[in-house]
């Protein structure tokens, strides 16, 4: 089986991660922010799986499973919050929710 350069997988994960980060930083729509968070989580999972392959051990994949669980729970709560927010403010613009400013 031909080998894959280990760091290429990690670099892909890093690029996906920063893409998600850009999404979080630039979007105002809370749905896009949540999606960007998902991208970042997924990138982390990818990094773990790459690590798992690098060391030939399954622990990385187990961490990926944990991340998957976390993502599921996070999406459930996040979507609940989005619904509530839309009900109260009739918008998905996160900038409207800036009442906590000092």
């Amino acid at each position: 089986m031909p080998s894959i350069p280990y760091e290429h997988g990690l670099i892909l994960a890093a690029i996906l991660f920063v893409c998600g980060l850009i999404g979080v930083l630039t979007r105002r729509n809370i749905v896009f922010i949540l999606m960007s968070l998902e991208i970042m989580l997924n990138a982390c999972g990818l990094a773990f799986v790459v690590g798992s392959a690098r060391w030939g051990h399954a622990d990385g994949q187990i961490m990926f499973l944990m991340i998957l669980t976390l993502a599921a729970a996070e999406v459930a709560v996040g979507l609940g919050l989005i619904i509530q927010m839309y009900r109260r403010f009739h918008t998905v613009d996160i900038s409207v929710l800036s009442e906590m400013k000092g």
């Binding site: 080998s3 894959i4 350069p5 280990y6 760091e7 890093a14 690029i15 850009i22 930083l25 051990h57």
Partner: peptide, 29 residues
Amino acid sequence: GPGLLILVLLVQLVNVLVTQQVDVVPVEV
């Protein structure tokens, strides 16, 4: 702004990651 910041972050990450040249021979788990 965010783009520049994140570019720096990416450079940093890559800088960390390319230090060791190890090839992965996938072993199916």
